[in-house]
Design a protein around this nucleic acid. Structure first.
Length: 470
DNA sequence: ATGTAC
């Protein structure tokens, strides 16, 4: 793949063949080692009907279903632009939430083992069923699909203030629950308020370093402060929703005269019945993911209050797998776009009207979950707005699960992490070894490249004190 | 990511 370096951390893939727009890759050469397959996916995405500006890739790009993970693609709704479930990913509205405690590490230290033990008991996780709300009925599920975090807060699982600190105020509008299949609902019923597995986690962290005092203060963060980070998604319900709508679009595509270089890019026009059905179902699944994070936050809050006498306030909740209808200038003219962000985080700049007033001056908090046992980051949106105000979402895998499990045993890894002063509460030792830090890219390099590319600025680095894993 | 396969 020929990459033209336009400036540091920005490479261009020139148009050729059926590409409608160029590819733009924000990265360093080092981060792009072994990225050939995912760069080919960037080229595939550039052929989609209605795509505008460029097919973008973030520094944490890696191979995904059809679209690369770490990809951003916007299509023009009024010009036959398409929506594609593969551009969102299977884990619809997977994302991150950060809560800040009113204690620092030293104050928490004596209570930390008890906090970790309580979290170990209270946080449902791992593959399969289990959740904070494990025995709900179909009507309550529909309320979750419509209301997301708003519904969880209304039921007493949170504070009114939380909703202002959630992307979309805690719920994506226009959820169409009728487009969520019976099978997806069945899978979702028993998993409301659960972490899942893989790289999902709940961590107790401390602010290790602050790079931007003004932004950190606005976000309610200071050096030494204890935080809780939650990384999870929409579980089996989101997965099933993606599966269902990929199948529908795969069959419908030819009726719209659409051909794609890879079947996994199945798509139909945003304004087609299939496109609208997917967006309605996607919004519902996204709300399931939002409620999920709200319920887990509430469980963590209760434990911190009871066990450590500490209060947790929400810094922000942001998704990194979602398509949204947004207005952005294209060649200087405002256009209605369907912005797919898959493994990419929205990062509104300072002054953006959709930000809560107390964050408007500094920009949107962007939460980057690190690999277990390494650092996580808090970033902020910046003026400029490249890639439709998007930035990275985390570290990409470099080792398969199998390779990782072969590289280190779960017991050995647990001992190593505990020796580093990180309390570990895994559900399974096999799952733990699959998530060993060596299996991932260096999240610090990803964040540095994102800042170098002008997509965001680094506000703070967080390091884990305790890890709850699936 | 995912009842790690329909």
């Amino acid at each position: 793949m020929e990459l033209v370096e336009e400036r540091p951390h920005r490479f261009r893939i020139d148009r050729r063949g059926r590409m409608r727009v160029p590819g733009v890759v924000f990265a360093s050469r080092a981060l792009l080692r072994d990225a050939e397959k995912s760069l080919e996916q960037v080229v595939h995405v550039a052929t989609l009907p209605g795509i505008v500006a460029a097919s973008y890739a973030m520094p944490d790009i890696h191979w995904g279903y059809g679209f690369p993970i770490g990809g951003v693609a916007a299509t023009d709704v009024d010009d036959g632009g398409v929506v594609s479930p593969g551009g969102v990913g299977f884990d619809i509205s997977c994302g991150v939430r950060l809560l800040a405690a009113d204690v620092d590490r030293q104050a928490l230290e004596p209570a930390l083992p008890a906090v970790m033990d309580a979290l170990d008991r209270a946080i449902p996780r791992g593959a399969g069923p289990g959740g904070v709300w494990r025995s709900i009925g179909p009507r309550q599920l529909e309320r979750i699909l419509r209301g997301g975090s708003q519904y969880a807060v209304a039921e007493g699982y949170g504070e009114e203030r939380d909703l202002g600190r959630c992307e979309d105020g805690g719920a994506v509008a226009d959820a169409d629950v009728g487009q969520v299949s019976e099978r997806a609902r069945e899978r979702g019923l028993g998993q409301v308020g659960s972490l899942g597995s893989g790289n999902h986690f709940l961590e107790v962290q401390q602010v290790d370093e602050v790079y931007d005092e003004t932004a950190a203060a606005a976000f309610g963060l200071a050096a030494g402060q204890v935080c809780v980070m939650i990384h999870c998604g929409s579980r089996g319900l989101g997965h099933q929703t993606c599966t269902d709508h990929v199948r529908v679009m795969d069959r419908a595509m030819s009726r719209y005269g659409i051909t794609v270089p890879d079947r996994q890019l199945a798509c139909t026009p945003v304004e087609s019945p299939e496109g609208q059905a997917y967006l309605g179902a996607m919004a519902a699944a996204a709300n399931y993911g939002r409620a999920n994070r709200q319920l887990l936050s509430d469980a963590a809050r209760r434990i911190f209050r009871r066990t450590a006498g500490a209060r947790l306030s929400l810094v922000y909740d942001v998704s990194h797998n979602l398509a949204k209808i947004e207005t952005h200038p294209v060649a200087g003219v405002p256009r209605l776009l369907c912005v797919h962000r898959k493994g990419a985080t929205r990062a509104f700049p300072p002054g953006h009207p959709d930000l809560p007033e107390d964050l408007r001056e500094v920009g949107q908090p962007v939460l980057i979950p690190g690999t277990m046992g390494t650092a996580s980051y808090v970033l902020a949106g910046v003026p400029g707005g490249d890639a439709f105000f998007s930035t990275c979402h985390g570290a990409g895998r470099v080792m398969s699960r199998h390779q990782a499990a072969r590289a280190i045993g779960g017991k050995e890894l647990r001992t190593r992490l505990e020796a580093q002063g990180i309390a570990v509460r895994p559900r399974s030792l096999r799952g733990l070894s699959e998530e060993t830090p060596e299996a991932y890219k260096d999240v610090g390099a990803v964040v540095a490249a994102s800042e170098g590319a002008g997509l965001c600025r680094t506000v703070a680095r967080l390091v884990p004190l305790g890890v709850v894993k699936g």
